[in-house]
């Protein structure tokens, strides 16, 4: 399935009450319609319209500066922390407009977790890193419950075996790959529905990368995952669907296999065959 150049859809309007007609089969978790992002004078995202299906891994690919990370950060309103950034258009999570005044950004981010490019564990113990989210959201009422959440999250992030005898040592003392899995454990400890990953493996070596990719594939059972990546192999390995961005436009989106074997658009073909980017 492919989209036309987005700006041709600019006139399409969606009713306020629904998420619009789904562009993918099998339900829609996140839907964006004519999303635009401006950084001061720079038009960083231009009329992007796409749907993200639940329990799938969606990969955003494209050359540096194409806006894929910016768009990713729109999905949990991380761009709010940047003063000069302005987001317009319609982005919905389970049919609810996340840029609506009534939406509490804190709750939104608890539902849409994020893992960053560079592993950024807090300068606290491994345990405290994972316990951070549940604590601030008051998800647990006593210590045993918290222990269970921390152990469960580390388990699901595939890190428990490596760290269970040193939960009190600082998270910053782990290796890069372990730190990134700790950040994933930290994100899933608040039971999000969607996990956004911004180039989660770009600072890691191939072995650590392989572990994270394996983990992403497992996490797909329970979460909806959106991953920005520079590595086309990675996109091909872990994702079910792929979106290709170029200069702030969504050029093409479809099944990963189709995008990599038979792309509609010349730009996509040029990028995946390595002719530019």
């Amino acid at each position: 399935m492919t989209y036309q150049q987005p700006h041709t859809e600019a006139s399409v309007s969606y009713p306020e009450t629904t998420a619009g007609s789904p562009l993918v089969a099998g339900g829609v978790k996140v839907a964006a319609r004519d999303a635009n992002v401006h950084y001061a004078d720079k038009h960083a995202i231009k009329d992007v319209t796409l749907d993200i299906a639940p329990h799938e891994v969606t990969a955003f690919i494209g050359p540096s500066g194409c806006g894929k990370s910016t768009f990713l950060r729109c999905l949990n309103r991380m761009n709010d922390t940047i003063d000069i950034c302005r987001v317009t258009g319609d982005i919905r999570l389970d049919g609810e407009d996340i840029y609506d005044r009534k939406v509490d950004v804190v709750q939104l981010r608890a539902r849409v977790g994020m893992v960053f490019q560079k592993p950024n564990p807090f300068p606290k113990s491994i345990y405290e890193n994972v316990a951070y989210g549940p604590r601030i959201h008051g998800l647990v009422s006593h210590k045993d419950e918290l222990d269970a959440v921390v152990h469960g999250s580390l388990e699901r992030a595939g890190l428990l075996n490596e760290v269970q005898d040193r939960l009190e040592s600082p998270g910053t003392g782990l290796s890069g790959g372990q730190q990134q899995r700790l950040c994933i454990a930290r994100a899933i400890a608040v039971s999000p529905e969607v996990i956004l990953m911004d180039e989660p493996c770009s600072a890691l070596d191939p072995i650590a990368t392989a572990k994270i990719e394996e983990l992403i594939d497992e996490l797909r059972q329970n979460y909806t995952i959106v991953i920005v990546t520079h590595s086309m192999q990675q996109a091909a390995r872990v994702s079910q669907r792929t979106a290709f961005f170029h200069l702030g436009n969504l050029v093409e989106m479809g099944d990963t296999e189709t995008i990599f074997t038979n792309p509609e658009h010349k730009l996509t073909q040029g990028y995946i065959t390595g002719r530019f980017g």
Binding site: N76, M78, T81, V106, Q107, L108, R109, A110, G113, M114, V115, F116, K118, N120, P121, F122, P123, K124, Y132, G133, I136, H137, C183, R186, A187, V190
Partner: peptide, 27 residues
């Protein structure tokens, strides 16, 4: 204190004051 620390905290749904008290000030 690196911006990455703050983003990590915001990304988990922490408010600004939680981020300051629990992440920024300890660091």
């Amino acid at each position: 204190v690196p911006q990455a620390m703050r983003e990590g905290s915001y990304g988990l749904g922490a408010t600004r004051s939680e981020t300051i008290r629990r992440v920024v000030l300890p660091a």
